[in-house]
Design a protein around this nucleic acid. Structure first.
Lengths: 128, 128
DNA sequence: TTCCGTGCAAACCCTTTGCACCTTT
DNA sequence: AAAGGTGCAAAGGGTTTGCACGGAA
C-alpha cells in the first residue's frame, strides 16, 4: 500500500504507534504519544498523516460529533462508543449485513459500512 | 414525552418542520426552513432545541466529522451517507443485529446502535 | 412573580491551511 | 536540484455559551 509520494519518519512513527494500540485514540492523544519519540513533531503533521492514511484505507477514521478517533485496524468491524467520555472500543461480533452491492439500487456507489453501538462505559457508570 | 419544562413556539416549530422532512437536515438548513415561519428565531435556539430533543430521544442526531444532521424519525434505522456532499438518506432494510443486551458483557449499558453505509450519491457521481 | 427559553454575539474547540524551511529522491 | 513533507501559528467552521430580555406557568 502506497501512502504518500515519499517516506517520512513522522508518518511511519504515527502508523507504528497507532497499530500498537488496541484503543482508538484522538489525534491529540496520538500526538502526545508520538511526541515521546519525536519531540518536535507538530499536531498539524499528525492530522495530515492520519487523514492521508485514512483516505488510502490503511487505517480507519472513526468520525463523531466531537473529536474524531482513529483505528489502526482497517478491517471493518463494529464499535462500541461511550456517550459520556467518547471512548471507543472494538466489538468482537461477526455481523451479517446486506452487502453494499444490494444497496446500489439507490444509485449510490457504496464503499463501506459503519456499525456503532453506544452507551455508557463501566467507568463512567460508576463515577457519575 | 416531556421535552423541556415549558412549551415554546420555537421548539414546537422546529420539531414540526423536522418531522415534515424525509431528508436529514443540518442545524443551519433547518434554521433556514424554520426562519420562513418565525423570522427572528436564532441559530443558537435551533441548536439548543435539537440537542435537547435528541437527548430525550424524540429525534435522532446523526453525528459526523463535519456538520451533524438530524432525523425526525427516532425509530432506529440504517442510513446511507454520501462522502462527497454529506447528504444522508434512509435505508429501508430490516437489519438483524445482536441486541444491545448481548453486549452488556463488556460492562457497558448499551442504549442504541447506529448503522451507516457510505459511498457516493448519484448526483455527486455524475458531476465530479 | 418566577425562572425557563430566547436572541445576539462572542467564545470555544477541533481541524485545516499558508508559508518558509527541511528532507527525500 | 526538484518538490513533497514538516513545524508553526493563524485562520476556519461548526457548535456552544454568557447575558439581558421576553414569555410560559
Amino acid at each position: 500500500m502506497k501512502i504518500g509520494q515519499r517516506r517520512s519518519k513522522q508518518r511511519e512513527l504515527i502508523l507504528e504507534e497507532l497499530k500498537a494500540l488496541t484503543c482508538h485514540p484522538t489525534a491529540d492523544e496520538l500526538y502526545e504519544i508520538v511526541r515521546k519519540r519525536l519531540a518536535n513533531i507538530s499536531l498539524g503533521t499528525v492530522y495530515r498523516n492520519l487523514d492521508l492514511m485514512a483516505s488510502t484505507g490503511i487505517i480507519l477514521k472513526i468520525e463523531s460529533g466531537g473529536k474524531n478517533r482513529f483505528d489502526g485496524n482497517a478491517m471493518p468491524h463494529p464499535h462500541l462508543r461511550c456517550t459520556e467520555c467518547g471512548k471507543v472500543e472494538d466489538i468482537m461480533f461477526d455481523v451479517n449485513l446486506p452487502t453494499p452491492s444490494e444497496l446500489e439500487a439507490n444509485g449510490y456507489e457504496v464503499t463501506g459500512c459503519t456499525i456503532e453501538y453506544y452507551g455508557i462505559c463501566p467507568n463512567c457508570k460508576t463515577c457519575c
